[in-house]
Write a protein that binds this DNA or RNA. Sequence first.
DNA 1: AACAGATGGCTACGATTAAGGATGTGGCAA
DNA 2: TTGCCACATCCTTAATCGTAGCCATCTGTT
Lengths: 335, 335
Amino acid sequence: MATIKDVAKLAGVALSTASYALSGNNKVSAKTREKVLEAARQLNYHKNGFAMDLKRSRTNTIALILADLSGPFYSELIRGVQEVALSNGYDLIACSSIGGGDSTAVRFLREKRVDGAVVLAYNMSDEVMQASAGAGFPIIAMDRIISGEGLISIIVDGESGGYEATRYLMDKGHRKIAYISGPSNSFANSLRYQGFQRAMQEGGLEEQAKWRISGGFVRDGGYKATKMMMMQGELPTAVFYGNDEMAIGGLKALEEGGIRVPEDISIIGFDDIQLTEFIQPPLTTIRQPMYESGSLAGHLLFQMLNGEEVDMFYKLNVKLIECQSVKDRSKVQSE
Amino acid sequence: MATIKDVAKLAGVALSTASYALSGNNKVSAKTREKVLEAARQLNYHKNGFAMDLKRSRTNTIALILADLSGPFYSELIRGVQEVALSNGYDLIACSSIGGGDSTAVRFLREKRVDGAVVLAYNMSDEVMQASAGAGFPIIAMDRIISGEGLISIIVDGESGGYEATRYLMDKGHRKIAYISGPSNSFANSLRYQGFQRAMQEGGLEEQAKWRISGGFVRDGGYKATKMMMMQGELPTAVFYGNDEMAIGGLKALEEGGIRVPEDISIIGFDDIQLTEFIQPPLTTIRQPMYESGSLAGHLLFQMLNGEEVDMFYKLNVKLIECQSVKDRSKVQSE
DNA sequence: AACAGATGGCTACGATTAAGGATGTGGCAA
DNA sequence: TTGCCACATCCTTAATCGTAGCCATCTGTT
């Protein structure tokens, strides 16, 4: 690889002049600049990014940290972050936190290979995030409440969402409601479940242990959990899936068992992923403001990078999206 | 941020000793190493990634370049690449080629911020890839055929896939077949379409211009294209969707129009994304070996980084996955 | 005294950038 | 016209970022 030295030599100028010319500084005459650019072109010269970052001690890059690059993506959220990064002239890279302390994500944070990060990865420990964040290095956590210098939490109000979803089912006359949960260590899942419990208690309904099954927030988990539920003899009249992915898996299991939705059983999801409107029946669900939260995360990151004062905690509201996967049983008295 | 200098000073040793101790070199005594590590702990010292990369002139990172981070992901492909990278002790980052010449992807290639790349991004120009690739910098292209030093192409045999899909429909008695296409500049789309055309010609069937509509390879595009097709009065008996995403969109449009699948119309997709088995009816499609191609890409990348000789071109085979979205009309003579 | 192991000094990696040096321009007096 | 000076313009010198690793030096053992 050609370095700026080679360019300078070929152009017959000093190193620094070449540097100035290449970064568009107006300290060099047009003629010299042209000479330098021509030399660079001839040598197919390109800056060495690291040397630049090292000297500038800034990378102009932020990281989006995900639990698993091949996992289900919140594409709207990413779009939100991406647009803000782009419009601020920053680069965005995504990396995975697979691998624990040796993961790419942890290395990028520790070694300060980026200027800040947005984290949506349950497998990142609070410790790592707290150790890395700081005045000059903002981290936005989107899947937990965490505090520390340079740390901001954005969460969606999963508790209200869980509550609303459950109330909605109850209002439609459902009394036997199952909850298919996400991973037990998931903060989002615990919020949703708390909302579910609050609504159940408030309505004087008893939660059945056999109807609380984990599907790990993944499609196939929802499928298996639903199969398991179906093998227990008695079916609930409604199922609250902790997220849409599991509901899609559940739908397949029900279909295979010849159980109609919503005629025989009602289901409700959570997230409002784009797919929900494309499946049969369109899924009633709780919408999370994905794009907005991603965009907010991006904006906050840059405000912090610019040294502005911002709040450390944000809670976004959810909204019930009524489709066709829930049947109104309130007029029917019994089965 | 503390630097290795500070660590050395606090530990009372020379810079180089600290460096050796921190990189686990056995040139230092256990006692000294401990002293240095303790100092590093006290100062919360972490290596500066750039300085290290600069000195080592190696990053231990490879990039996965995608057209759009928020776009539909080939998660299996990513998993393939990711696993290989991880097992070789490399980091993997994903970045987007949105933004043309100023995109993150182009900068990462040009400025050599990674050691190599896997590219699956139609909006990357051949020129950029050819200019960046070289003996020490391998690039694996997964969406085109391209040649040059350090460049390898992996493609799936879309032509055969398109041919097989179409033959399959014809074998099932279909004579009126529509093709919902991807973007016209997509290499994958053109292969599939060529296969479609070959089968049609071979079967003596005429392709109807009104039944070749573009859906841009996206779900919503498939939905709109299908709506458009439905408005033209005459329906084909089968639709070949250029990819599964569009087929899912199309399914919704058909559903809305009260057209049953496969009773009234048969559909076939392409890709075999995970979702296909979860929709109703499960989609007959052409499977691309996604995981395998990702894994192959990863392996080739590391072989090149290790200076081994490899072929410059790979073509992977596809396979028809028979599900329930195609009806056999071969016994029915007319409609 | 020779040797091996441990430690320290120093330079290079490739770029940025402040500060100072060289060069050229124009104005004015002799 | 010529010579001198002030001044702006353009360019160069040199320090620096944080780390790796060569090579020299020192220490203690045999």
